[in-house]
Amino acid sequence: MTRTIKHSFFYSHSAEIVWEYLTNSELMAQWLMPNDFMPEVGHEFRFTIKPIPEFEFDGIIYCNVMEIVPFKKLVYSWKGGPGDGSINLDSVVTWTLVTKENGTELLLEHSGLMKNISIYEAMNKGWKENIAKIDELINKSTHGATKA
């Protein structure tokens, strides 16, 4: 199971206008981040934000345009790391535009942030059981010691 961030937002504007703000580098910079995006599949580009040292993130997001369906869908990879060439954030951002009566619904999916989420979930589930088990073990070993 993969943990995905999902947001949907309604804009009272046409899909064409919203699309423009999603795919025009200068307009993107106005609300998202400085970038060198171009609406071409395979185009490699970067977003730059403030580095976040506690996440060992140098502030550069390396992206590659994966899919473009004009006015409907835009997908790019979203990778980052501490700045030594290694990548520790390997995710994908998907934008979907749905035309509604009075505007456009914009759906954002940021997936792959937790590729290894199964561990995380198993961990949360197994947490209490484990604590109990450890208690048991500690008790056993203390008993063992007193008996010996």
Binding site: F9, Y11, W31, L108
Partner: peptide, 16 residues
């Protein structure tokens, strides 16, 4: 990232 996107989407609304 969750709050990052929320903020950005709101900013886009204001801009539009």
């Amino acid at each position: 990232f969750d709050s990052f996107w929320k903020n950005k989407l709101k900013k886009l609304e204001t801009l539009l």
